[in-house]
């Protein structure tokens, strides 16, 4: 089973939930940090890194002797990474998504693909947890291919937990695509609610069963609860707004290591997720009935 932990809003507690979920699993577990722009799972797990690989995307390199300036490459590129002006072909490699369309349509075979480094994937172990994360090259904007490289290392025989990036755009879609279940972590504030609504719309579009974790419960107002009730969205766990939890976080400690009762709570959460995923008791199913 693949469980993705996502949120919409940043800083709601995705990593707190993802790491504690992984550490509570009685069976073999793999934890993937797909927030490749700012990975932080390793700060909590302190894994022993056993391997790494450089991740590249193919970008065009034009041989002008072969080019007939037909503009086919510039016209097929949705991202304007290749342009033809006068007798010149310009490439903007940082805009290239690496689809290979330009070299495919080139009638004179003037475009070859060369690799451009976007980041690295590292893997290792922390206690019983198999760990994988990606580190995007600084200044790089093209994170989805790196997220795909992280997810290539998924071993489906295990419980797989994905710590997704915040937001609802391409990196999030790439991270949660293919998951059997999504946990949406929010906080009971107007900001938390606004971004939860966006995240719910995203997950429904992808038709993945999901439930909500409310972090910093006791803070803010009741609107997140009203929204979840009105929409029939189950709240599977509440983590209180508690100074001790914030202090443990600031020391890089796992919630489940802080107090034994949290291990029980996360084991219960895991069982609940498994049941929901299996039964498909997701809201979108209930709504579509």
């Amino acid at each position: 089973m693949i469980v993705a932990v996502a949120s919409g809003k940043g800083g709601t507690g995705k990593t707190t939930v993802a790491t504690s979920l992984a550490a509570s699993s009685a069976s073999a577990v793999q934890l993937l940090d797909c927030d490749v722009e700012e990975p932080n799972v390793h700060i909590f797990l302190r894994p022993e890194i056993r391997g790494s690989e450089c991740v590249t995307i193919p970008v065009p390199d034009v041989e002008m002797e072969k080019c007939n300036l037909c503009r086919e490459c510039a016209e097929i590129c949705a991202y304007h990474a290749i342009a033809v002006l006068g007798d010149q072909v310009l490439t903007f490699q940082e805009l290239c998504h690496g689809c290979g369309g330009c070299s495919l349509v080139c009638p004179t075979d003037a475009i070859r693909e060369i690799p451009r480094e976007i980041g690295t994937v590292e893997w290792g172990t922390a206690g019983g947890i198999d760990f994988v994360h990606g580190r995007l090259r600084i200044g790089e904007a093209m994170s989805p291919p790196l997220i795909r490289a992280v997810k290539k290392r998924i071993e489906r025989s295990r419980l797989v937990i994905i710590d997704a990036p915040p937001g609802t755009s391409c990196p999030v879609i790439e991270s949660i695509r293919g998951a059997d279940f999504v946990l949406l972590v929010t906080e009971p504030t107007p900001f938390g609610l606004n971004d939860l609504v966006l995240a719910v719309q995203t997950v429904r579009e992808l038709q993945i069963p999901f439930s909500v974790v409310v972090n910093r419960a006791g803070l803010g107002d009741e609107e997140v609860y009203h929204y979840c009730r009105d929409q029939g969205i189950p709240i599977d766990l509440e983590i209180p707004f508690d100074r001790r939890i914030a202090e443990a976080y600031s020391r890089g400690e796992l919630l489940v290591e802080m107090m034994a009762e949290w291990r029980v709570a996360f084991q219960t959460l895991l069982r609940s997720i498994e049941e929901r995923a299996i039964r498909g008791r997701a809201l979108h199913h209930e709504v579509s009935r």
Partner: peptide
């Protein structure tokens, strides 16, 4: 309304 590369496209059009 292009997601990226608007300047590149506009420059090609105007050229």
């Amino acid at each position: 309304s292009a997601p990226q590369g608007a300047g590149i496209q506009a420059a090609q059009n105007i050229a």
